[in-house]
């Protein structure tokens, strides 16, 4: 499958999984909301230009907002994730490194430890921004901190499970 149809398919399935499976789970605790959908942005190919990446993040978040009826909330968080993604990648793998020879970020292209840092930083950014914007409407500091930590932990765990379930083989790109 080409990159474009593959990503369109992922776009739709991540939204549907988030809306119809993860959001339907009865809350285990008031702090725990499982978020997985933004993994779509994490999986986008390296070569997507930065404005395009930011814009895709915005549109992706907004589509989820249509389902959850929270206009702008997920859009803002996804936009942030998409914007800081290139910075995080630049820090984790240098330009000369093998990372850029692969199509998209994956444990097999970045190495497990780098990939885990990548996932952790971006899910923290996503959940921080999301919970912070929610908190501005209902102020409670303990709620803010507790929810950021708990949701990030759950997101991280879910992403690692998904990574284990759907192994993505990364082809090595050569110039030939």
């Amino acid at each position: 499958m080409g990159e474009l149809p593959k990503n369109i398919f992922r776009f739709i399935s991540f939204i549907l999984v988030q809306v119809f499976i993860l959001n339907k789970i009865p809350p285990l605790h008031q702090f725990v909301t499982p978020y997985l959908y933004f993994l779509f942005i994490l999986w986008l190919p390296f070569k997507v230009s930065r404005p395009a990446l930011t814009f895709i993040g915005f549109i992706f978040g907004l589509s989820l907002d249509y389902f959850t009826k929270t206009p702008g909330l997920h859009a803002a968080a996804c936009c942030l994730v998409a914007y800081i993604r290139p910075f995080v990648i630049n820090i984790l793998i240098s330009k000369e490194d093998s990372g850029y020879n692969y199509t998209s970020p994956a444990p097999s292209s970045m190495g497990w430890s780098q990939y885990m840092v990548y996932v952790f930083v971006l899910s923290l950014a996503h959940n921080f921004w999301l919970v912070f914007l929610e908190w501005l409407q209902l102020r409670n500091f303990l709620y803010l901190v507790g929810k950021i930590i708990a949701t990030t932990g759950v997101s991280f765990l879910l992403i690692m499970i998904t990574e284990g379930l759907f192994f993505r083989k990364q082809k090595f790109k050569t110039n030939i």
Binding site: F58, P71, G72, L73, C79, L133
Partner: peptide, 28 residues
């Protein structure tokens, strides 16, 4: 890139905070 990102953030926050049940018709 930065300006584009900030614009999108401002748009998102604007619709989030200026949204109440009376503006719903426009968004939905």
């Amino acid at each position: 890139n930065l300006i584009f990102f900030l614009t999108l953030q401002v748009i998102a926050c604007y619709i989030l905070f200026h949204y109440n049940r009376y503006h719903e018709a426009v968004f939905m």
